[in-house]
């Protein structure tokens, strides 16, 4: 037996220390934390709401990256969970049950259940079939929401108040909502990084690269993937909770396949299976959307080629440029 301690310290072939690894995310979080103050100076709540939009997208995208980047499961229906979380929030508030003690459990349970059932079916397939079936389940929810005539149907549902946090009114003003969202995003980021290095993450990542071998080792790959699918659904649902509160409005459009496509774009642009990819991707996405749409109405015509260029030149997305080098996953 060799000395067990030596190679165990750096089994990822990660030369970078913990500070260097955390640095890009720390900088981004610090930048985000300063935005309300910056908005104060430039006299616009607009910047704050843009940043909130980016953070909500980052939260949903970090969940999607658990599937795409870590597990290798390209879900094309992930916006459905954002929409489901938003609708549950909207409906509860409309029905006078505005307490987060009621809303959040309801969001979590409904998203977990929908993910569990549709995941158990979708995960029997792979590749393009998986993309198509997750798309189909997403559209199912989209049309379901569109037909909710009691809650605005196609037109969506306007909310007259935000969720109540144990009588504190924390989310009632944009500053409270902003920092609650930021803290949630930080927690999600820390959890996602831990998960990628955990036993569970190792099984998921291993199975992405070679599912047959991982099964031959004794792992029921399906169960691990289903668990990841449920986790990703729940986190996206929480993003939906914030979306409903921020926009004070919920709409079937949140669930459309275009929104699911946006989330995939964010994950790819930011860098699949990277530490800060979802964060970087979401900020870049919102910034590009903002910048380009002020130039031209057909901003997607510019955005599309730009994205293809990014995907071709930087395989690990924006994160590949700023993250500490990581083992190839």
């Amino acid at each position: 037996m060799k000395d067990a301690a030596a190679p165990l310290a750096a089994p990822h072939a990660d030369a970078a220390g913990p500070l260097r690894r955390a640095a890009p995310a720390l900088v981004l979080f610090a930048f985000l934390a300063l935005i309300p103050a910056l908005a104060e100076v430039w006299g616009g709540g607009y910047l704050t709401s843009l940043a909130m939009r980016a953070m909500i997208l980052a939260l949903a995208a970090s969940a999607l990256d658990l599937l795409i980047g870590r597990a290798g499961l390209v879900s094309f229906g992930h916006a459905a969970y954002v929409g489901l979380g938003a609708y549950v929030t909207g409906i509860f508030i409309t029905e006078g049950m505005a307490s987060v003690a009621l809303i959040l459990p309801a969001v979590i349970i409904s998203c977990a259940l929908f993910a569990f059932i549709t995941g158990a079916i979708s995960l029997r397939t792979s590749g393009v079939s998986f993309i198509m079936i997750t798309l189909a389940f997403g559209q199912m929810l989209y049309f379901g929401a569109s037909s909710l005539s009691a809650y605005g149907a196609d037109d969506g549902l306007t909310l007259w108040e935000r969720a109540d946090v144990f009588g504190t009114g924390l989310l009632y003003d944009n500053l409270g909502l902003f920092y609650t969202l930021l803290l949630t995003l930080i927690a999600a980021h820390v959890a996602a990084s831990a998960l990628a290095a955990s036993r569970f993450g190792r099984v998921l990542i291993g199975a992405k690269q070679n599912a047959e071998r991982v099964a031959a080792m004794g792992f029921d790959v399906f169960r691990y993937r289903l668990a990841a699918y449920v986790i990703a659904g729940v986190v996206a649902g929480i993003a939906g909770f914030f979306l409903a509160n921020q926009a004070e409005f919920v709409s079937p459009a949140y669930m459309s396949w275009q929104r699911s496509g946006d989330l995939i774009i964010i994950v790819v642009l930011g860098g699949m299976g990277t530490r800060s990819g979802a964060l970087l991707g979401a900020i870049a996405f919102v910034a590009l959307e903002e910048g380009l749409s002020s130039l031209t109405h057909d901003w997607r015509l510019i955005f599309g080629p730009l994205l293809i260029l990014a995907a071709l030149t930087a395989k690990r997305g924006i994160a590949g440029l700023v993250d500490a080098p990581e083992a190839r996953r």
């Binding site: 831990a194 036993r199 190792r202």
Partner: peptide, 29 residues
């Protein structure tokens, strides 16, 4: 598993026989 180190390849196999792998936070390494 090509993107894993030599140790990680063997460790994943060992992990399969060392209790539950539904552990989400502690670093496997």
């Amino acid at each position: 598993i090509p993107g894993f180190t030599v140790l990680e390849n063997a460790a994943l196999a060992a992990q399969a026989r060392a209790g539950s792998s539904f552990r989400f936070f502690r670093p496997a390494a």
